[in-house]
Design a protein around this nucleic acid. Structure first.
Length: 467
RNA sequence: GGCGACAUAGCCAAGUGGUAAGGCGUGGGCCUGCAAAGCCCUGAUGCCCCAGUUCAAAUCUGGGUGUCGCCUCCA
């Protein structure tokens, strides 16, 4: 598999440190609010990466953290009149509601910064001992100029970074580029005891500490949004490599932004939609489809038109899956015919092309193209006039789901429970149709429609799907 | 100012040297009690512009134009 490595700015063949195993870390949300649609992109994209690596046989250890102590959380706690810990707890819960809706599997480990204070303090102390950090008025800062590779991820010459930061006036730092590892507690702020007095960790040090604790000194993949490249990931490299004396990350992956009216969606610009709002309008899974309809590094524009197109495309997928489910249950009771077997023999071609697309730096747009080519072929081969067999329906269904499981689509399919209720109403409507009582037939159809069930009359019988 | 990304049909979006995937939408058709779905046909002689390299370029090179991002908390 080829991965575009932000560090080298090239696609590189992915070779894990240990054969058959992948250690990956993804920067998780700061839990002070509902996540917005922009936040959802890395969550979805790197969930697909994790699924694909597992599909290819790797044992994946995936760590995604929660930043649950931070200025914004403290601010929020004052606004809401509850403790910072309660704010964090509340929005972690909301995060999981959204993540589950989006079809995102829980990471292997989802640590919180506040569960790792001892590790963070140790790491800060190590950096002080090695001369890479210094205490100043209860704060501890990283001595940026001391780390030779500073700027290597963002490819920024250190002089340019310096000039950009020049305007900052701060007497307690040796250099404007130095960043906080530990912040002294102000009155009424949450704090932990440390060798430098009461305080709390800076943002960047958390990820270094947790990555090291749960995955080790060198990991295979570290991912996040492009805006984390500098300074967050740059700082992580400086911290981890200075402390451990070895390479921190083999492959850096950064996803592109979601735009609104061609401008970055962000909380600071206040032009964002929360996932909760978007899901109310289009459904969670439509958001997931939308995110995967373009390659993860390219910017995508969030608009009603795009989301509606994604919803329509997703419906086509559901229709196909429903048809196959129908055939599995009601198809011809016989072995697969010669032509059915011949078609099943072509599955490997689709698989090869799907894998090739995903191997190419997770080209989900291309992979979805293959998926839809499969859908059309399956629709043709399972047309009612061909009286497809149940075995064939299952074979096609399995193939379809092999792909949709990798990209995490089709996670809201029908249940057997619902089947029974709907089937009964369908039977009553069929009786009415047979008696040419179309008024009653249409009434039942409307009744089901009101419950979100859409009927379709086909030569092979009445099918239905969730609208 | 420094660094970087992108520009493909009405819309979304693949395609990095060999003659334009896929989805949405439009129009027509088959099928149907009607509808829906599905299938077939339809759609860029063309890939922002101008040069150049090549037997061959959306794909490579040079120069433009336009849009966006990072350099500050941010996915």
């Amino acid at each position: 598999m080829e991965i575009f490595n932000s560090m080298t700015r090239k696609k590189e063949t992915f070779v894990p440190l240990k054969e058959g195993e992948v250690k990956m870390y993804c920067c998780g949300p700061t839990v002070y609010n509902f996540i917005h649609v922009g936040n959802a992109r890395p969550i979805i994209v790197f969930d697909v990466l994790r699924r694909y690596l597992e599909y290819r046989g790797y044992k994946v250890t995936f760590v995604q953290n929660f930043t649950d102590v931070d200025d914004k959380i403290i601010k929020r706690s004052l606004e809401e009149g509850i403790s910072a810990a309660e704010v964090a707890e509340k929005y972690i819960k909301e995060y999981f509601t959204d993540a589950q809706g989006l079809g995102v599997r829980p990471a292997t480990i989802q640590p919180k910064a506040t569960e790792n204070i001892a590790q963070i303090i140790d790491l800060v102390q190590t950096l002080i001992d090695k001369g890479y950090a210094y205490e100043s008025g209860g704060d501890v800062y990283y001595r940026t100029l001391k780390f030779k590779g500073y700027g290597k991820l963002s490819h920024q010459p250190i002089d340019d970074l310096m000039s950009g930061a020049r305007i900052e006036v701060n007497d307690i730092k040796e250099n404007p580029l130095d960043f906080a590892l530990w912040k002294a507690a102000k009155p009424s702020e949450p704090y932990w005891e440390s060798p430098w007095g009461k305080g709390r960790p800076g943002w960047h040090i958390e990820c270094s500490a947790m990555s090291n604790r749960y995955l080790g000194k060198t990991i295979d993949i570290h991912c996040g949004g492009q805006d984390l490249e500098f300074p967050h990931h740059e700082n992580e490299i400086a911290q981890s490599e200075a402390a451990n004396g070895c390479e921190f990350v083999r492959y850096w992956m950064h996803n592109g932004f979601i735009n609104i009216d061609n401008h970055k969606m962000s909380k600071s610009l206040n032009n964002f939609f929360t996932v909760r709002e978007a899901a109310a309008d289009y459904g969670y899974e439509t958001i997931r489809f939308f995110m995967l309809s373009a390659q993860y590094r390219s910017p995508i524009n969030y608009s009603a038109e795009s989301l509606n197109q994604s919803k329509a495309a997703l419906d086509r997928l559901y229709t196909a899956a429903d048809n196959l489910r129908f055939i599995e249950k009601n198809g011809a009771e016989r072995d697969m015919s010669a032509s059915e077997k011949a078609f099943a023999d072509t599955f490997q071609n689709y698989r090869d092309r799907f894998d090739a697309a995903m191997d190419d730096d997770l080209n989900t747009a291309d992979a979805i193209g293959v998926l839809f080519e499969l859908v059309r072929a399956v629709n043709i081969e399972t047309a009612p006039e061909k009286s497809p067999s149940r075995a064939f329906g299952k074979a096609c269904s399995d193939m379809l789901h092999e792909f949709t499981n990798v990209i995490g689509l089709l996670c809201n399919e029908k249940s057997d429970d619902l089947d029974a209720k709907v089937e009964e109403l369908i039977a009553r409507r069929q009786a009415a149709r047979k008696a040419k009582n179309f008024a009653e037939a249409d009434r039942i159809r409307d009744e089901l429609k009101a419950q979100g069930i859409i009927l379709e009359d086909t030569p092979a019988g009445v099918k239905w799907h969730k609208g």
